[in-house]
Nucleic acid binder design. Structure first.
Lengths: 239, 239
DNA sequence: GGGGTAAACGGACCGAGGTCCGTTGAATGT
DNA sequence: ACATTCAACGGACCTCGGTCCGTTTACCCC
């Protein structure tokens, strides 16, 4: 159905982070595609935006970024963004769907940076190093990256349901799956990848660092352990 | 500090699930205690509630449970609960702190049931079976339990920051730590326990089941793999 | 029983996310 | 240029979580 074209949510840019054109208030969805590793699918043909829409979009992101830098992602209000950009509130929502959508859009550039690192960057994070090395580096990179943009990532994760449907997540997932296979890991690679990503979850790491006063180095070591276990003795007993 | 006694949030009952008397708007907190395994600490001496408060508390929970059963946890509004119980909205907030607090309170009885299962129930979930068996059973139990009360658990997890500070979480954590040690696992047991719990996260499981169409059995098998890896070859390479 | 005190209450109030719908104006065809 | 169309806009409006503060009342001590 979906008669109204719905919020047209952001970029035709080639982004792995953005969710597809229809944002939050979207029904079931089959999602049976994307099973193979590293299917990129450039977000489909996003319907071209009007010139003013593009302009506003850019200004909104700019203003939002400024406000976040100024008062923290926590205190960003949609109204303030609209006002700062000189547009109506409805425009902000039309563009980004909801608050989480805006946060995700804000993260987009950072996320692309990280992605570039493990997709095409220099080893051991990028291609060229043995899979296990890359796995280890991946964890460290994600840990440090998310810590560096902590409040933005936290704010983007308020929407519990979208956390794992966002392209950025699937990309990380595919990447891990690929490396795991390459490393000769056995067992259910899909689940193993999810499990590894769960360990890197910003909310978990944040908890460990802040509430349990763990050092990032310790958490990193924990990641190395996980990688070693996940790739070493391939799932002995499944039953 | 804390001059205002603050919302007195619910029960002096011996609950592992409820958070301590001061709810959401509470500052730093050191939490340096509770490091040892299975320190129970009965939530301290909760200041006795007035009779009317106890009465209202009970009615509120009753009404809330009814409404959840009727319209789903998703659609539960604080106002409706207040109205249904014939009290003011302020009373609801005074009692439970916030929406998440109410959800958590609603989960309390279910959670205690689960806890009874792995603390004092029959093997293999309860004491008596070898640690590895208990670990396996623990995962299955949690998976099934949370699936059974899915929407309530999901609703209770909207508060990202509290998910891992709630007693129920620490209890599960201690339990896993204990079993891991008993099973002769090596490495950082604390992190291993957190990692295992992350796999059982209701939001992850929900995603796997709903969006990736995985069967609960498959997810269970994944847990067995994790347990095998976590207890089997104790962390070979830490570096 | 009476009086003092602080817990508990109630509901007006506020802020922010999100929706709706009448209006504006960019794109496109002639 | 002009007309037509529909994407995009704007801001009033709604809902709901959460707060505040003046009022009520359970509890305790005399």
């Amino acid at each position: 159905m979906v008669t109204d074209s719905g919020p047209d949510v952001f970029p035709e840019r080639y982004s792995f982070f953005m969710t597809e054109p229809l944002p939050s208030p979207r029904p079931a969805r089959d999602d049976s595609a994307g099973r193979a590793d590293l299917v990129l699918e450039p977000v489909g043909e996003a319907p071209r935006l009007r010139a003013d829409a593009v302009r506003n979009s850019a200004r909104l992101l700019e203003v939002a970024a400024d406000l976040v830098a100024l008062r923290g992602a926590e205190n960003l209000t949609m109204e303030a963004v609209a006002q700062g950009a000189g547009v109506g509130k409805g425009t902000v929502f039309r563009r980004f769907g909801d608050r989480a959508g805006l946060m995700i859009a804000l993260l987009d550039s950072h996320e692309q940076e990280l992605q570039a690192g493990f997709l095409t960057g220099p080893p051991p994070l990028g291609p060229g190093a043995p899979a296990v090395e890359r796995l280890r580096a991946f964890g460290s990179a994600v840990l440090r990256h998310e810590q560096a943009h902590r409040d933005l990532y936290l704010a983007a994760h308020i929407d519990i349901r979208r956390r794992r449907t966002v392209p950025a997540y699937s990309l990380r997932l595919s990447h891990l799956r690929l490396l795991l296979r390459e490393a000769g890991a056995g067992g259910d690679l899909d689940l193993a990848a999810h499990s590894l990503l769960a360990y890197l979850d910003i909310t978990l790491v944040d908890h460990l660092v802040l509430r349990e006063a763990m050092s990032l180095e310790r958490i990193e070591s924990g990641w190395y352990e996980l990688v070693a276990r996940g790739t070493g003795a391939a799932a002995p007993d499944d039953r």
